[in-house]
Computed example of a mutant assay.
Amino acid sequence: MRDLAAAQYVLLTTFRKDGTPVDTPLWVAPDGDAAVVWTPRESWKVRRIRHTPRVTVAECDVRGNVRGDSVSAHAELLDDAGSDHVRTLVARKYGILGRLTLFGSRVRRGRTGTIGIRITGEPAA
């Protein structure tokens, strides 16, 4: 996950109940051996992850055009403290643009209106 976390954007693919994949390009930041992303708490991707934490991730550009191989992974929705940590990592990686985006989101949604997602390699069966 470290290589993916170093990318500017990743394409996070979540899966609907019927198995249909849904792609979303997101900012990503490294967190140890994991990658973390940040998104609105009420987004459909969060609902899909609640249903099934199985995801795939790949490096992409801002429009979601894939630039590398897709990797199977496991997504974990974080609590408020974990989400705060993700916001700090995003601000650190993306600099002034990251801080401005986080500020705008906080104004619109409040501190708990977004959630951090920790992405790790597929767990052993």
Rank of each mutant, 00 (worst) to 15 (best):
A6H: 05
A6R: 08
A7V: 07
Q8K: 13
Y9P: 03
L11R: 14
T13P: 03
T14K: 03
F15C: 06
R16M: 03
K17T: 06
V22G: 05
L26M: 13
D31Y: 04
D33C: 04
A34E: 08
V36K: 04
W38G: 02
P40E: 07
W44V: 00
R47H: 07
I49D: 07
H51K: 03
H51T: 04
R54Y: 13
T56W: 10
D61W: 13
V62K: 14
R63N: 12
G64N: 14
N65G: 13
V66Q: 15
V66I: 15
V66F: 13
G68Y: 09
A73I: 04
A75E: 05
A75S: 09
L78F: 07
L78S: 06
D79M: 10
A81S: 11
G82N: 03
G82A: 05
G82C: 04
D84S: 11
D84M: 04
D84K: 07
H85S: 04
H85Y: 03
V86P: 03
V86D: 02
L89W: 00
K93R: 12
Y94V: 03
I96Q: 00
I96C: 00
R99E: 03
L100Y: 06
T101N: 12
G104I: 11
G104M: 13
R106Y: 14
V107N: 12
G113K: 09
T114P: 00
I115L: 10
G116H: 08
I117E: 01
G121D: 14
P123H: 10
A125M: 08
